[in-house]
């Protein structure tokens, strides 16, 4: 198991995959911050005064972390932040489903009412958590611009 987690090639592929997912996910949110803000409001979890700040900050954090993962710059910091974000998404989706707010996640486009896609998004996010955890525990540092 340890060898799989530390495998250079597996770590590289996971890094690139997670990096691309985060960069892709950030695109619509950066282009349409108002729509993303409404998606956040839809979850009824964030106080109204913080919604726009979060809508502006989160997508750029996704973009910056995605780029850092791919290039291997500020790598450890990016991994921790990516894991935190994946965890936040997981908690938000789970509690939304538990409270009957059946919407899709708003991960790649504005959130809409949809009971099936909420579950799909949850499974997708669980898969993402597995990938980010692999990166968190992997000791491989090959093919990175910096070694820390």
């Amino acid at each position: 198991m340890r060898r799989v987690i530390d495998h250079d090639l597996i770590t590289l592929v996971t890094r690139l995959l997670v990096g691309v997912i985060f960069i892709y996910a950030s695109y619509y949110k950066i282009v349409e911050p108002a729509a993303f803000a409404r998606s956040i409001w839809y979850y009824h979890m964030v106080p109204g005064t913080l919604i726009n700040l979060m809508a502006l900050f989160m997508p750029w954090l996704e973009l910056v972390c995605g780029v850092c993962l791919i290039l291997g710059v500020c790598y450890r910091g990016a991994i921790v932040l990516v894991n935190l974000m994946a965890l936040v998404f997981l908690v938000a989706l789970s509690t939304a489903i538990a409270r009957g707010i059946n919407i899709d996640c708003g991960c790649f486009k504005a959130a809409q009412a949809s009971s099936e896609s909420a579950w799909e998004a949850l499974w997708f996010d669980l898969g993402l958590v597995v990938l980010t955890l692999q990166l968190l525990f992997s000791r491989s540092r090959r093919w990175m611009l910096t070694r820390v």
Binding site: I30, L56, F57, P59, W60, L61, L63, V64, C65, C68, C74, Y75, R76, G77, A78, V80, L81, V148
Partner: peptide, 20 residues
């Protein structure tokens, strides 16, 4: 080191997000 990097990334992100 990890904490320092995370802080750097958060600061860079804040400048980009609120600046853009």
């Amino acid at each position: 080191m990890v904490f320092k990097q995370a802080i750097i990334l958060v600061v860079v992100t804040s400048v980009l997000a609120f600046g853009v």
